[in-house]
Design a protein around this nucleic acid. Sequence first.
DNA 1: GACCTGACGCCCC
DNA 2: AGGGGCGCCAGGT
Length: 108
Amino acid sequence: MKKKSYWEDVFEVTRSIPVGRVSTYGAIADYLALGSARMVGWALNHCHTSEELVPAHRVVNRLGELSGRHMFPTPTMMEEELTAEGVVVENDKVKDFKTRFWHPQEMH
DNA sequence: GACCTGACGCCCC
DNA sequence: AGGGGCGCCAGGT
């Protein structure tokens, strides 16, 4: 069976996140049955290895916090991108995160 | 080959 | 409600 590297799956799911919506490491990990949300963060950390652009800024932790913002070229880039897409970011946290939350299950 | 760290999450106090 | 600790998988040193 052809088994793509799990980070490829993470990239695909991440790219499937609609504009203006956000997802969480835990949701993606649960959807892909990775068993650990850390693997999602780790995979996105190497998202630059993928030739396809990965909207990693749409992935936040379970609290809706931009925990990965410090890993971007600039700490404010993640917030800028989200704001540009219509997502309100307040104090490094997604406003109305509960409403903005998108689960990979929805695309199926 | 062993130990430590990491873009996290859940349980307990 | 807030803070701290343990568990998770993989990679780097």
